[in-house]
Design a protein around this nucleic acid. Sequence first.
DNA 1: GATGCCGGGTA
DNA 2: TACCCGGCATC
Length: 471
Amino acid sequence: MKDTIELYWRCDTVLSPLTACSSTMAAMRPEYEAGAGPGGTVTCPKGPQARVYPTAHHANWPETQQNLADTQSCVQAEKAPTEGGHHKNKISANPQREADRGWRNLATPLQTVGPTVHRKKMSATGEASCSFRSPESVEMDEIMAAMVLTSLSCSPVVQSPPLTDPGPAGSSSSADMECGGGELSDSGSSGYWSWDHGNASPTPSPFVAEVDSSPDEGLHMDLEQGEELNAKKPKSSFRCVYKCLWPSCGKVLTSSVGMKRHIRVLHLGSGSDQSQREEDFYYTKISCEGVDASSAPAPTQQALGQASSSHLSWASCASPPAAELQIPPAPRPRSNSSSGPGPSRPSPLSQSAPSSFWQIHSEHLYQACGPVQAPVAPSSPGCQGWTPTAPVSGNSNTPMVKPRCRSVSVGEQWLQQNRLQPMSASPSRSHCSFRKGRGEAKKCRKVYGVERKDQWCTACRWKKACQRFPD
DNA sequence: GATGCCGGGTA
DNA sequence: TACCCGGCATC
């Protein structure tokens, strides 16, 4: 019987990273001591089998699982009061475990992982084993089993983003990830999850999306999510596809959240705080199409079959559709070398730098185009070449999209210059002759003459590059 | 010299 | 930010 106590203490040591476990252990010791006889022995109704629990990390693991399965049928029934009582009340009673405080946040989220294990174990054994035990033993076993299960479920892999590719949309793992695998809340609040213990399918609460949302996105979502979730079904929504821009990846997902996770997990590696905010630069929203909500999959199908699609509506609708593609807030060059997007593929990244670049009214377009058009002028050999098309029209009243617009946009240039060769771009550019030769295109001066200078475009009047008749 | 427009100054 | 102009390059 002393072995039992000792083993429980060992358990406390082995599972020390898990504060919930250790704290609960602390809560248990008095119970054992209370149950001990005059000689200090502990009454262990279950017998030697009970000693197995603390040694869950040892060689007799199959047996342990079996025993755990025995107890889980009881634990699951009384899980809530067990957790609520011991965890919160006894944590402070173990000061030496305060160093493990960092793990404490795991306690609540990890409890959500438990039921998955419970279901697996329960089906094999049944509840008969706990029927003949005394209530004290049952309670004890419940606590122990809960802790062991928790410890088994709370490996750092669970805490950190999964190291494996979530796989094609539709895998259950991606659905689990979507429910918070990589971004468990530090708040420890269990409100994000509402496990229906009687239901086989986990049903994340509506706040799950808030967990996954990036900080800036979450600002909008906090306000809109509630009504959006209610109104999501009847309304038609925009369905967007996000494509990974990482070199030789090209993975396509249907939600920005899933894509962010994909990038963070696969490409950015560890889920550091910095990397968690850089996923935006590596994916693009490649298409948006109106989708009737009735054709969208059911919520459960969304959770299981379509990775991250449960957030599709807010991910795509939080921003204005189509016209306002996702734009990284403040592009930060990464020292980590990575090739930019394909040169010819239109992408939000390519439109990011001058977001409304192409919509600037022609009368002031030179102010936006000026610095851009110079490096790509035909007469500048060192610059990235692109041949501007011939002027589409000389109509000064409809200068919507200027022919100098090109497939490779400024944003992509920016990306290439800041990522591929952040330093080497400047010399060639600096030596570029920004002043191009006179083209054949008539300028306002030629067309209208000096005597009709008032009809010149503003740029010509200001001796700027003519934007009415660009080369 | 005429033209185009960059870079900088000013209000 | 809008406006203006000196000055340079090109034709």
